[in-house]
């Protein structure tokens, strides 16, 4: 089963670029990615540019309406994701808990819908 792990955190929380902790933080991400590839769980995964780069579009009123910024103005923002192929939810949650951002943010785990 595929699970989408959505990585949420407040943007200024956690190790920041230039700080001594940042190197270890990036290394932890590299280690995690290596581990899930070795475990044959990894399907995809990326970090996203910061939320100031976000644009939102809707055609609810018939024509594309474009807005600056994210869809929801919340304290914690989507910063990246991993798509994992796991045995079950327990397995997915076990890996999600290893994502380095889980230490200061939250990981939302959602099963991917399968159309049969």
């Amino acid at each position: 089963m595929q699970y989408m792990c959505l990585i949420y955190a407040a943007e200024m929380s956690g190790p920041q670029p230039g700080s001594p902790e940042f190197g270890a933080y990036i290394q932890a991400y590299n280690d995690f990615t290596t581990r899930i590839k070795a475990d044959a769980v990894f399907v995809a995964g990326d970090a996203l540019q910061r939320v100031v780069t976000a644009s939102t579009v809707t055609t609810a009123n018939g024509t594309p309406e474009i807005m600056d910024g994210p869809f929801a103005e919340t304290k914690e923002q989507l910063g990246g994701y991993y798509l994992l192929d796991c045995e079950n939810l327990d397995d997915a949650l076990k890996y999600a808990a290893m994502i380095p951002t889980a230490k200061h943010g939250r990981i939302e785990v959602r099963p991917v819908m399968v159309f049969d």
Partner: peptide, 14 residues
């Protein structure tokens, strides 16, 4: 069913 919550006794670690 949809989230795949397993139907088993958890492993020793959990």
């Amino acid at each position: 069913k949809l989230a795949g919550i397993p139907y088993e006794i958890p492993g020793a670690d959990a």
